[in-house]
Design a protein around this nucleic acid. Structure first.
Length: 190
DNA sequence: CTTAGGATCGCCT
DNA sequence: GGCGATCCTAAGC
């Protein structure tokens, strides 16, 4: 057990390993959140990754210690939440793409102005809005408040496929999903 | 069901 | 000046 191990996951491992292990983990922010059903891995030597061109002010957290949050603004509008992995200075992370809502449903409905459970956390921008994640969470350690991570049930069936919304390394199968989940941002494409 | 366009801003070329 | 690790709405089939 080290500082980078939380909810049974060693965040110093490679991003694709961590991304796979995060499926089924419950993530709460101030008690609001759900079970992770979709993730994507991004590594330093990965043309699709924000870390590919080296550290900048925006991606600084990605080059910080593992088991911390990297939050960035997407398209000037939405926030997206990553969990940093590998050793400090490496520049790798896992994007949280979808949750199955579990706790604080009414708060999430109010924040999202949406009633349908499936629309609360079925996308990286949506789940940040539902959980109240903003730039203020960038760089925070995942083992302490406001974050709380709870271990996944063992033996979950996981599917993988190409990542979404990128134009480089489009065939790398680093998107992971909980098999059969109704809460994915989009169906898994083998 | 699928596709197209706009919102909006920090980063890069 | 262009382009995103996106989302929503509207329109088309």
């Amino acid at each position: 057990m080290t500082m980078s191990t939380i909810a049974g996951i060693d965040f110093s491992a490679p991003a694709d390993i961590v991304a796979r292990q995060l499926i089924g983990v419950t993530v709460l922010v101030d008690g609001v959140g759900g079970r992770i059903v979709e993730t994507e891995a991004y590594d330093r030597e990965d043309p699709a990754s924000h870390a590919f061109s080296g550290p900048t002010e925006r991606n600084a957290s990605m080059f910080g210690p593992p088991a911390h949050a990297y939050v960035y603004r997407s398209y000037g509008i939405h926030w997206c939440l990553n969990f940093v992995c590998r050793e400090a200075g490496h520049g790798a992370g896992v994007l949280l793409r979808a949750l199955e809502p579990v706790a604080g449903l009414d708060i999430m409905r109010a924040r999202r102005d949406a009633l349908d459970e499936r629309l609360l956390c079925s996308g990286p921008g949506k789940l940040c809005q539902a959980l109240g994640v903003t730039r203020a969470h960038d760089g925070m350690w995942l083992a302490g408040a406001p974050f709380e991570l709870l271990p996944a049930a063992p033996g979950l069936a996981i599917v993988e496929g190409p990542r979404i919304g990128i134009s480089k390394a489009v065939d790398v199968p680093w998107r992971f999903g909980l098999a059969g989940s109704r809460f994915l941002s989009r169906p898994m494409r083998g």
